[in-house]
């Protein structure tokens, strides 16, 4: 039974999930456009950051330190992986994007394996325990913000959606209104031309790693808020989805990525509402991706590389 109230609730739900997809896809596309890498495992780094923040919160019980840990670890992993990508690009003379994806997959394997053996014995971690969240703040966000009959929207969903919107707006502001953003777009359109104009490629590349690191860390904090838990294989699943969204929208297409990411979030939420089962929403998501990719291998909005 799908009446209008449930539908609206699911759309809000989907938008909050979608805003996380938007953040992930935009980070992925930025790295693709500016640093010229297919960072397939970008979401895995974010799941890693969630784990780091969980560890810190487990030890200190401090929410602020947890968020800080998420951002710091995302930047750190990004900065550590940067020289590896730079290295393979130099070795091959020109940029071989396939090789960057394989390297990224290797990094993803490494991180996923590590989290699934070394942390919490490989069991999913929860942010809703006494140790992690001694003040009960996170648990408090589970309370309904609005409730109308069967329908309820929790504070965590509203918070995620609002923060997500602010983050996406901030990101696009950086891209379109700042000096660094202008340099990003110039490199994205024509790296050689940008170099001739006098834009420092290395410095701008490093800036893009830092920006996506900050973005990734904040996304990790949001995901912890929205999902309340994480498991080692979450990263791979998100990795596939992000790559899927990016391909469906057209690789490197920032605006297209935003639209498709929000749509996917809504579709997943609605499917979840109809079938009330977790595994089917993923199945429908991948079925949709499959159909669209088969029909339009170059994306709905076109590749912008």
């Amino acid at each position: 039974m799908l009446n209008i109230e449930i539908l609206i609730a699911q759309i809000v739900n989907g938008l909050s999930l979608g805003s996380i997809y938007v953040l992930l896809v935009t980070g992925f596309n930025l790295l693709l456009l500016v640093a010229m890498i297919i960072h397939f495992s970008f979401p895995v780094i974010i799941v890693f950051s969630i784990y780091m923040s969980w560890i810190v919160m487990n030890l200190t019980g401090s929410l602020a330190l947890g968020i800080l840990a998420a951002v710091a670890s995302a930047i750190l992993v990004n900065m550590v992986s940067a020289p590896i990508f730079q290295h393979i690009m130099r070795k091959r003379g020109s940029v071989d994007i396939n090789a960057t994806m394989v390297i990224s997959m290797g990094m993803g394997m490494l991180i996923t394996e590590w989290t699934s053996h070394a942390i919490n014995n490989g069991f999913p971690i929860s942010f809703e325990t006494e140790a992690v969240d001694p003040h009960g703040w996170l648990r408090a966000t589970r309370a309904p913000f609005i409730r109308a009959g069967l329908v309820s929207i929790s504070y965590s969903q509203v918070l995620t959606l609002l923060t997500g919107i602010i983050l996406v707006a901030a990101l696009f502001w950086v891209l379109y209104k700042t000096k660094a953003g202008r340099a990003f777009r110039a490199i994205a359109e024509n790296p050689d031309g940008a170099r001739l104009v006098g834009i420092p490629l290395l410095k701008t590349g490093v800036q893009s790693y830092i920006l996506t690191g900050i973005l990734g860390g904040l996304t990790a904090a949001l995901m912890a808020l929205l999902l309340g838990q994480a498991s080692p294989d979450l990263g791979d699943q998100l990795g596939h989805k992000v790559l899927g969204i990016s391909i469906i929208a057209g690789l490197g297409n920032l605006g297209g990525g935003l639209v498709i990411a929000l749509l996917l979030g809504i579709v997943e939420a609605i499917v979840q509402g109809v079938f009330s089962g977790g595994s089917w929403s993923n199945t429908v998501a991948f079925l949709l991706m499959l159909v669209i990719v088969l029909a339009k291998p170059r994306g709905v909005f076109g590749i912008k590389l």
Binding site: H240, N282, T283, M289, L290, L294
Partner: peptide
């Protein structure tokens, strides 16, 4: 996807894996 770009082929593979599993 015979002449699709590498990444489109990759995502088709992943989607198929998930569907088969589901």
């Amino acid at each position: 996807i015979g002449d699709a770009p590498c990444f489109a082929v990759v995502i088709v593979g992943f989607a198929f894996m998930y569907l088969t599993k589901a």
